[in-house]
């Protein structure tokens, strides 16, 4: 069964890189929701979401980022999306989220957004 794998790595300047691989859909989104909730509880609000390994995302998955963005920004942070594959980028585009989120090509560029 397709699953979601989440790896969190603390970078400099209070930034956390969240790397996702696998499938982010209505079955797995709660896993990510809990993981981001845990980061917020630890006071980590500057998140780089690395989607290089993500094979599939549905609206349930995108909903996690939508639901977290305002809280991150209210606490001096942000959610920056990076390294999307063409299919994953297409979902952000269809939902109009490319105008809402900072979306960059790689992690180094994402660090400069904060």
């Amino acid at each position: 069964m397709p699953e979601l794998d989440i790896k969190n790595v603390d970078l400099d300047d209070g930034i956390t890189q969240v790397s996702l691989s696998g499938f982010l859909d209505a079955h797995t989104f709660e896993q990510l929701d809990e993981s981001i909730g845990d980061l917020f509880n630890e006071g980590k609000f500057k998140l780089i979401i690395d989607l290089a390994g993500l094979e599939y995302i549905s609206s349930a998955g995108a909903g996690v980022f939508i639901g977290s963005l305002a809280e991150a920004q209210e606490n001096g942070g942000n959610i920056v999306i990076t390294s999307t594959t063409p299919n994953v980028f297409e979902v952000f585009d269809l939902l109009g989220l490319t105008q809402i989120f900072s979306m960059v090509d790689d992690v180094e560029s994402a660090k400069k957004v904060f």
Binding site: S58, G63, I66, G67, I100
Partner: peptide
Amino acid sequence: IETHVAAGKRSGLG
């Protein structure tokens, strides 16, 4: 979508 994001709404986009 902008209202959706501002409200932190997680569903309703399918």
